[in-house]
Each structure stands twice: as C-alpha cells, then as structure tokens.
Nucleic acid binder design. Structure first.
Lengths: 354, 354
DNA sequence: CCGGCTTTTGCAACCGGTTTCAGGAATGCT
DNA sequence: AGCATTCCTGAAACCGGTTGCAAAAGCCGG
C-alpha cells in the first residue's frame, strides 16, 4: 500500500534541511548520551515523576556536559505557555515608567517569568498594536502599566489573556486593576500648603480627561473646600504631564496676573518645568512661590531646590502589578495592597509670603 | 502487527488534553474554512510561492473571519528563529538607558523585530544570567547596551548568537561594537570652559576603571595640555555616575579647599548632584561655579539653571545599535555612522569669576 | 515459584506551524 | 496527438520539546 511504502522509506529522513542552521543541543542528544529515552530525560528535567537515582545522575551529567538548555519555543508549543508576560507602558524613556518597569521586571524574574516590554506612546492605536503583537507571541498575561485604551476594549482582551491594569478601576474576569489613591495624595499636598499659610494655590493639571489628573483635581478641590476657601477656576491651568506643560502653565498664570503663592503640580515632571519657568521669571522657590509635585521621582531629591512631592513608589506599584499577575496565573484571586501614598517634605515649600 | 494496530487506533486522538486550554485559531481551522490544505494556507500567508488568485482570496477571507494570527512559538520552532532581539542594559529606570532603550525599540519594531529587555544592574553575574536566559529563549540576536562583562566572555557568546555591543571597541565575527567619541566630547566641554576663562577646572569621574570615564578623563587632560595648563590630580575626584557621587565630589572639593571655578562632570546625573551640593554650600551656578555635564539627557534642559552638556543622543545610539543588529541578521557587514557628539551651551556655564 | 500490584521507562501522538516531495493539471513544443 | 515542462496543491516529515498509555521491571505475600 501507499502508506506502507511511505512509512518504509520516509521521504526526507536523510535529506538536508535547507536553510536551517541548527546548532543547539537538543533533548534527544542529551538522552542518547545518557542512554535513556527523550521522555525520561524530559521527566527528569521537569521532575514530573520519580526516576531512578542512577538515570537521574546520568542525565544530569549529560546536561552539564553539553550545556543543554531546553528550547523555549518547543517548550512553549508543547505546554501552551511561554513564561513570558507582556508589558505595555507608555514611554520607556520617561523616569516615571522606567521606575515602574523596573519593579515589574524584578518581581517577574523572581517568579520565573520574563517581561516583554512594548510602548504605546499614549496612542490607543499603538496600544492595540502592542496587544495584538503580544497575544501573537503567546504571552501568558499582559500588564498594562497605565494606558489610554477604553475599558470595553480592555475587557474584551481580558477574555483572551489575563490582564493587570494600573491607573484605573475596572472589574472583570481574569482582569485585575489597581489604582493609587490620587485624591488622598492630592489632599496631603494641599493640606501641607494650607498649613504653611497659603491661600492662593494654583493647580497645574494634565491632559484633559486624564483620570489621574481628574482625581488629583478632585483632591485639590476637596482640600480647598475643607479649608473654607472658594474654588477659583482661574487658578487651574492645563499641562501635559511633562516639563514643557509646567513651564507654559507658569507663564500663563503670571501673564494673567492672578495672584498665587503656591503651586500644586499634577506630577513631578510638571513641577520641574514650573520650577524653571519661575526661575526665568525671577521668582524664588520657595521664598516667593512654593511648589509641590506628585510621584516623588528619584530625581526630585536632587532638584534645586529639592522638590516636596507626594510619594507613590512607582517601583512598588510595578512590583504589585507583577505580583497580581503571578497570582492571577496561579489561579488565585489576587489580593494586593498598594503602598500608601505619603507626603515627602523637602525644600520647595515654605511659609506663604506676606 | 503492533505498529499497524497503533496506526489504526491512535492512542490519544480523542483523549482530552488535560491542562491545555487552547483557545486560539489555528492554521488548520483557517485552511479547512477556506477549503484548502494547511500547506497552501501557509504559503499564501508567507507569499513563498504563487497560488491561484481564487484560493488566495478564500484564505484571506477565512483569516479575516477568524482573526487568525499565527502562533509565534510554532513558527519559531519550525523556522528556527523568533524575530526577537534580546537587549541587555544596566538599569531600566535610569533616564540614560531609558532613552537608549526607546531608540532600540523603535528601530527594531520598524524592522519587524521585537525587543526583549533585561537589566544587568551593573553586575557581571547578572549579565551572564541575562545572556543565558535570552539564548534559551531563542532570541535571534543580542544587543548589549553597555555592560561590564569582559571582552573574552562576550566574544565567546558571539559564537552562539549575533551581538551588538555599545560602549566598547571590539572585533569579532558576528559581533559589532560601537562607541561614541568620548575623548572628543570631553574636549569640547573643556574648550568651552577654557574659552570662558576658567583655569581651575575640576573633573568628577565615575567608577574606577569604567571605560567611558577613563576616555573622558583623557579628553580632560588633553584639553588642559593643549591650553598649557598643568594637570592637578587633586582636581579629579571620583563619583558613581549618579547624583550622590556628584554631591560627594563637591563636598570633597570644597572641604579640601582646592580652588576651582568650574566643574566638568562625567555625566549629567553627576552634574545634577553637583548642582545641588553647590546650592547647599551657598555657591551660585554659574556666577560662582560653572558646571558642564555629558550626555545631555532630556531633563537637563529643565534643570535650574538649564545644564550645559555634551550631547550624545542616546536615543540615536540605540537606533544605531538596532540598525546594526538588523544588518547583521540580514547577513551584511554593518556600516554604521554614529551621530557626532556636540556641545549644547545652556545657562550653567559663564565667564570665570574675577 | 507464581500471580497481583506498584513503580519505572519507552513509544508514539501532539503542540501549530513550515517545507520537501511527488502527483495531477495545465501548457508548450514537435 | 504525444511527450516534456511548468505550475499548483496536498500529504506527510519535521522543528524540539511534553505526556498518555502500556509494556517491562521490581516487589510482595502466599
């Protein structure tokens, strides 16, 4: 019969495999060296069942001799998982994300997983591209370290792959969200300024409708209300979460001649820009104007003057996200407590002038 | 015969596959939907041979209908490559590396590859771990964005996988190295300070024996020599490439009462620290002391005052490294020209005081 | 010394693609 | 029309692991 013939003379058993420069050591080679079958070798490596001591030693010796490392692609294919977690953040280069990524990496590695980072650059379309790419690559889960993709789309993806997302609150199966307490942080900052006697406090916000910015704005307003100070919308100006936005905000505030003695910035980078603009305008920090940031980036310690800021350890946030992902993958419902936000008082704030 | 029986009733054709929640669309499903064989579908997807228009359309329709995306692990296994480049850097969180990683990512993605980042944290042992991990994962190449692993070990790895390394000069097969012109950059910085009339210029270096630091020191000495100023070793103090080192260096310089009117720092982060320490000591920048950095990190534009620095676009360096890797993989001997270093004069430098 | 029970081990199927090989259809040439 | 080419397509081998099943081996009491 046809089949029999084919079986008898396998078509390509001896044929050279064209453009495939395989140079690596395979499990079969190890097994042959140790005088066992590939299955046994595999079982020894993964400790799936008991194997006689004798064979175990033989296989281990062979592994050491060849420096064998199992091929991840083959393993992934057979197991249906890759021990890899996709991480989507917005911008690698930013100190904020860098910190978080570092936290994610360290926790993930300890858990035996490797992170695969991709940047969305604040564009929903790019985030979708990243998602697709990561899913294609068969990652076991995806951590979205804040993103602008809408909730519905994100939930849809959660049906294909476990997801941990920071910076928003959202409930779904196989999806964990975690958000720092922005309102409370903003209130801490404001209370500090109010305690120092400031009454005219500006707030430099971020992009329109960015959830973090909005939450912090709510905290700002609540703090004012609690102190019995009326809310003046002219003191709230838009920024872009970066230095440039902070600078423009200061220029705008000064040009419109609205008096203020302190500024609360939506994040540290904005505060850096504000600091420079104030310097250009000849204002001293904190003698003339006090400045408070949010995030407490490592660089803030070394600003001139060192910046007072609301600390949310971004690195810890990253670690928590990774931890949540590990628990999710282990089939547990993650129970994560975020590190509390706290105010770090440095030298950019002082008593209100006059 | 035994074999015949097994063939007739395949052992596990109907058995459920235990812990394998496969949910993805496979090539076979697409092929069946389109009424062709898997081989044909594969050929259409990869454009490996001509296929009749009719079938092509049918397959494309099926792909669209199911939202099929080929499984990367299977592809990697069959092809012997993963379209993934491992990237080893030292610290994700650092602004310097963040910039470079961003450059690498953007170039790699345009070339159809994805980066797999891992951090070595300045420890040779960790770098080795990263290397092994990346090789296990079957990356097609590795970019080492500066590292402390010794040349010999690196060359050895180059025999297993193509490597691009920055921050050192090294020749080997399947290995490309690229290094910015540190000496020249340092000379630019020094010439600027000398032109402003400075004669007592301190140099804050990095870790002992770090090649970048040494090269920049050479530039420093050459510039002094060219200006006919004797080299005073007391003006050279060690740092750590970070803010803390810059601060300590200033304290050390001031405490030892060596007069100086300008400082050249081995990198921007060091300069930031120096700036803060000078501020604490009541010295004004640039009125009392001029400060120059190296790298021109984005944050330097927004320091108070904005920092004069030697620009080496780290992002472009990253892009170049990625470009070199792509060429290496394409089988070409990469010919890469690094962007030139240049001095960016801002407000941290001024004429030498009295 | 033998049957029943518990390991230990190997065979071969399988993961989801790619690619070789060969068969069949279509086309070219004499 | 007849035979050699060329083109298109599908069957099956293969990449390098994991694993269900069953045969083989080891252990036991009777």
């Amino acid at each position: 019969m046809k089949k029999a013939r084919v079986k008898a003379v396998p078509a390509r058993t001896r044929g050279k495999r064209g453009p495939r420069p395989r140079n690596s050591v395979t499990l079969k080679m190890v097994a042959r060296e140790a005088g066992v079958s590939a299955s046994t070798a595999s079982r020894i490596i993964n400790r799936t069942v008991n194997v006689s001591e004798e064979l175990r030693l033989a296989v281990e010796a062979a592994i050491a001799k060849f420096g064998f490392r199992p091929n991840a692609a083959a393993r992934g294919l057979a197991l249906g998982k890759t021990e890899t977690i996709g991480v989507i953040s917005q911008a690698m280069a930013s100190p904020f994300y860098g910190e978080g990524l570092r936290g994610i990496e360290s926790r993930l590695l300890r858990g035996g997983y490797a992170p695969l980072f991709m940047s969305g650059n604040w564009q929903e379309k790019e985030e979708v591209r990243c998602m697709e790419e990561l899913i294609t690559r068969g990652v076991d889960g995806i951590i979205m370290f804040t993103g602008c993709m809408n909730d519905v789309a994100l939930k849809a993806y959660a049906r294909k792959v476990p997801i941990v997302v920071t910076g928003r609150t959202l409930r779904a199966r196989r999806l964990v969200s975690m958000q720092v307490d922005d309102q409370y942080g903003a209130m801490l900052a404001m209370r500090h300024l109010l305690d120092l006697g400031h009454r005219r406090i500006a707030f430099v916000t971020g992009f329109e409708n960015h959830p973090d910015a909005n939450e912090r704005l709510v905290g700002y307003r609540n703090a004012l209300a609690a102190a019995g100070i009326p809310y003046d919308p002219r003191l709230v100006v838009a920024g872009d979460f970066h230095e440039e936005g902070g600078m423009q905000a200061v220029y705008q505030l000064m040009d419109s001649n609205i008096g203020f003695t302190a500024m609360f910035c939506v994040n540290d980078e904005t505060a850096y820009g504000a600091g420079l603009a104030l310097f250009r305008k000849g204002m001293r920090v904190p003698e003339d104007i006090s400045v408070v940031g949010f995030d407490d980036l490592p660089a803030s310690t070394y600003r001139v003057p060192p910046l007072t800021s609301v600390r949310q350890s971004v690195q810890q946030l990253g670690e928590c996200a990774a931890e949540a992902m590990l628990q999710l993958l282990a089939g547990r419902r993650p129970l994560i407590v975020l590190p509390p936000v706290e105010l770090v008082v440095r030298e950019s704030t002082g008593r209100a002038a006059g």
